[in-house]
């Protein structure tokens, strides 16, 4: 699967993100540095974008 060594930066703060080997496309992750919520928008190559903001109708 995905190799961990691929460096990918937080689009908010440029901190390097460790992406686990079982990461999924469209998975949400939190930046350990700035706490920003990020979405994995591509696995190969690895690419992160800021996750969409919470909307009024979001919930369980």
């Amino acid at each position: 699967m995905l190799a961990v060594q691929e460096a990918v930066l937080c689009p908010m703060c440029d901190a390097t993100q460790e992406i686990s080997a079982d990461a999924m496309l469209n998975e949400l992750i939190a930046c350990g540095d700035c706490g920003g919520e990020l979405e994995i928008v591509s696995l190969q190559p690895l690419r992160l974008e800021l996750a969409p903001p919470c909307e009024e109708d979001w919930g369980e």
Binding site: D22, M24, L25, N26, E27, L28, E39, A51, P52, W58
Partner: peptide, 13 residues
């Protein structure tokens, strides 16, 4: 059908 993948969706899959 998901909005995005969270811990729950990963576990469910």
């Amino acid at each position: 059908l998901v909005t995005h993948i969270r811990a729950e969706e990963k576990l469910l899959r």
